[in-house]
């Protein structure tokens, strides 16, 4: 294998790993996919080291090493991209895809997301079901539906303008809580506290928390701790928003 093609393949593999990490795959999956993709494309071995915001990858073939580093900027979670990259890896492993096909398909990977007008009502309904599961009455569920629909619209609106995620979560939690407090002011429901608890559940960073623990369980300590810290900060940010809203409403 010539030096140029080792360069080429290493670039493809590192691009794949970078995309996986940016769109929220767990470290074990990233390591697994990049090692298998590298071997499928003809490298002897791939060693990868992941930290919270960068990745270092070394490819080895015929006693020659190439090491390269990439900065990772988190783009939010997109399972379409992760699924597509897993497909590419499997097809390369079966020998259906060579270097050129992998390159072409990698360059076409782009994150598509659901339209806001589909996501917002679904999240409203989800939080209303949470309220129902937590034992709220019908009016509490309606109030949760209203509050979390408004909250999700605010969250998507702020995200569109590229604000810091922590700022976004604080403002969203504040708006949700202001709306959900209507249950205390007007006696429409017997369970206003359930509506209040359920409507902020759309802000729970469930995915980063699960990723954090499963990284730590599988031995990627530093990444796991970094993700845990990130998730705790997000929770703290939303609680600050909630607290301000509660103090304005006089419930605290």
């Amino acid at each position: 294998m010539y030096a140029e093609s080792q360069n080429d393949i290493t670039r493809l593999v590192v691009q794949c790993a970078q995309l996986l990490l940016a769109y929220g795959a767990e470290s074990e999956l990233v390591e697994d996919i990049s090692q298998r993709l590298g071997k499928a494309l003809g490298l002897a071995s791939i060693e990868i080291s992941i930290s919270s915001n960068s990745l270092v990858l070394t490819s080895l073939v015929h006693g020659r090493c190439i090491t390269t580093t990439r900065r990772i900027r988190a783009h939010g979670i997109n399972m379409m991209v992760v699924c597509e990259l897993q497909r590419i890896c499997l097809l390369a492993e079966k020998g259906i895809y060579g270097v050129n096909e992998v390159r072409r398909r990698l360059s076409r990977v782009e994150p598509r997301s659901y339209p806001a007008k589909a996501v917002i009502p679904m999240i409203g309904l989800s939080c209303a079901s949470f309220c129902h599961l937590l034992g709220g009455d019908v009016m509490a569920c309606m109030l949760t539906l209203l509050a979390s629909t408004i909250g999700m619209s605010v969250r998507l609106f702020i995200a569109k303008h590229h604000f810091n995620l922590l700022v976004n979560f604080s403002i969203t939690a504040f708006c949700i809580n202001i709306v959900a407090q209507l249950g205390y002011i007007y006696p429409i429901t017997d369970t206003p506290q359930t509506a209040m608890a359920a409507s902020v559940l759309l802000l729970v960073p469930g995915f980063p928390l699960i990723n954090a623990i499963s990284d730590m369980v599988k031995g990627h300590m530093s990444v796991g701790i970094a993700r845990w810290g990130q998730a705790s900060l997000l929770t703290l940010a939303s609680v600050i928003g909630i607290t301000i809203a509660m103090q304005i409403g006089g419930i605290f």
Binding site: G24, I77, N78, M79, M80, C83, P111, R112, S113, Y114, A118, V119, M122, I123, L125, S126, C127, S129, F130, G206, F207
Partner: peptide, 13 residues
């Protein structure tokens, strides 16, 4: 219902 709702937030195909 929440499983589908949050799957859409995570952009599951």
């Amino acid at each position: 219902i929440p499983a589908v709702g949050f799957a859409m937030v995570f952009n599951v195909p």
